[in-house]
C-alpha cells in the first residue's frame, strides 16, 4: 500500500491555474486577432507569428541559459505578451524591429526583474514605448486597413484619427472642419481606421473583455474606472469648447483606449491587488491619458499613462488595503 500523505489543509484545490488564465486571455484576444488579420491581411499574420516565435524563443533562451531555472514557456504568459506586443505595432513594421521589440518585452521588461509575476511594467507596453521612441517614423506610419489586397509589398499609409485631430487642431482648424477627415463612429466600432493592429476594432475588443469578465480573469474595476474617467474628463472639455476638443465618444473609440483598458491595464502582474486600488489605478490612467492626448506632444497617451501608473502600483498596494473583517467600529444594535 502507498504511504499516506500528510499535508496541511486545504486538501482540495480549485481547477484554476496560471495556464488557464493565460490561455483564457489569449482566447479573449482571438476576435481582435481575426479582425486585425481581416483588415491588414498577410502583414498582420507576419507580425503576429513573428512576435510569438521571437517572444517564446527569447523566454526559452533566457530561462534555460541565463537564469538556468525551469523552463516555463508553456504557461502562456510569453504568448500573451507576444500577442499584446503585436497588437501594439503597425502591421508594416520591419521584421527586425518586431524581433527587437520581443527581446525588449521579454528580456528587459520581464526577465530582468526575475520573470513571471515580478515585472513592474507591462512588458508589451515597455516594448511598444521603446520602439516608438527608437523608431518614431516606422512606428507612426499606419497602413490603411485594406485587407488582403495589401499583400506583402508597400501599403498606403495614413495617420490615425487621433493624429489627424492632433495635427488639425494644432494647425488651427476646428473640430467641425476636421469632421470629414476622421472616421465615423460606426467605422471606429468596426475598425476601419488607421492604427496599430489590435486597437482598430472596438467591438472585437469589447467582446474579448466581456469574455474575460465572464471567466473572472479580470474584474470590472480597472476598465470601468479608466474609461469612466476619460469620458467625464473629455466631456467637461468638450462641454467647454466643442470646437477645440474632441468629443468623449471619439476619445473612447479611437487609439489604444479600449485595448489599453481591457487588455493592458488589467494585466494582473502590473496592476493593484485590491478593488479600491484598482479604481485609483484606472482613474489615474484615465486622467494621464487625456492629459497626454490633449496637451501632450504625442497624439496617443494610453501606453505612457499605463506605464506611469504601473510605477506607482506598489504605493497603491500599500495604501489601499482590502476591507478587513471586523474593523468596522460601531455595531448597530437594531440591525
Amino acid at each position: 500500500m502507498n504511504k499516506f500523505t500528510i499535508s496541511g489543509s486545504p486538501h482540495i484545490k480549485s481547477d484554476e491555474s496560471t495556464k488557464k488564465i493565460m490561455y483564457g486571455v489569449a482566447l479573449a484576444m482571438a476576435p481582435t486577432m481575426l479582425v486585425s488579420i481581416y483588415f491588414f491581411g498577410f502583414q498582420a499574420i507576419r507580425v503576429l507569428v513573428l512576435a510569438c516565435i521571437a517572444s517564446l524563443f527569447f523566454e526559452w533562451v533566457i530561462q534555460k541559459y541565463l537564469i538556468k531555472g525551469p523552463v516555463t514557456i508553456d504557461d502562456g504568459s510569453a504568448l500573451v505578451t507576444a500577442i499584446l506586443l503585436a497588437f501594439n505595432l503597425p502591421s508594416n513594421l520591419p521584421s527586425w524591429m518586431i524581433i527587437i521589440g520581443a527581446l525588449i518585452a521579454i528580456g528587459m521588461a520581464k526577465m530582468s526583474f526575475g520573470g513571471l509575476g515580478r515585472n513592474i511594467f507591462n512588458p508589451a507596453l515597455v516594448a511598444r514605448v521603446f520602439l516608438l521612441i527608437s523608431f518614431p517614423v516606422q512606428m507612426t506610419s499606419w497602413p490603411k486597413p485594406e485587407g488582403f489586397s495589401i499583400g506583402l509589398s508597400d501599403a498606403t499609409t495614413g495617420a490615425t484619427p487621433l493624429g489627424i485631430v492632433k495635427e488639425g487642431l494644432g494647425a488651427g482648424k476646428t473640430m467641425s472642419q476636421l469632421k470629414p477627415e476622421i472616421p465615423t463612429y460606426i467605422q471606429d466600432l468596426m475598425g476601419q481606421m488607421g492604427g496599430s493592429m489590435g486597437e482598430v476594432s472596438a467591438i472585437a475588443l469589447i467582446l474579448g473583455g466581456l469574455y474575460m469578465l465572464w471567466k473572472k480573469i479580470i474584474t470590472w474595476h480597472i476598465p470601468v474606472a479608466m474609461l469612466g474617467t476619460v469620458v467625464i474628463f473629455t466631456s467637461i472639455l468638450w462641454g467647454i469648447d466643442s470646437e477645440h476638443f474632441a468629443d468623449p465618444v471619439f476619445h473612447l473609440l479611437t487609439g489604444g483606449m479600449l485595448l489599453g483598458a481591457i487588455f493592458m491595464a488589467t494585466d494582473m502582474v502590473s496592476s493593484p491587488m485590491t478593488h479600491g486600488g484598482q479604481i485609483v489605478f484606472g482613474v489615474g490612467i484615465g486622467i494621464l491619458t487625456v492629459l497626454i492626448r490633449v496637451w501632450g506632444a504625442y497624439p496617443e497617451g494610453v501606453s505612457f499613462a499605463i506605464l506611469l501608473m504601473n510605477a506607482v502600483v506598489p504605493l497603491i498596494n500599500k495604501g489601499f488595503k482590502p476591507k478587513r473583517f471586523g474593523l468596522k467600529p460601531a455595531i448597530s444594535k437594531n440591525s
Binding site: 504511504k3 499516506f4 500523505t5 500528510i6 499535508s7 496541511g8
Partner: peptide
C-alpha cells in the same frame, strides 16, 4: 523509516 509522506513548505516549524 518513513511511514507517511509529508508534503508542504520546507519549514520545520510548520
Amino acid at each position: 523509516p518513513a511511514k507517511v509522506k509529508f508534503e508542504g513548505v520546507t519549514s520545520c516549524a510548520f
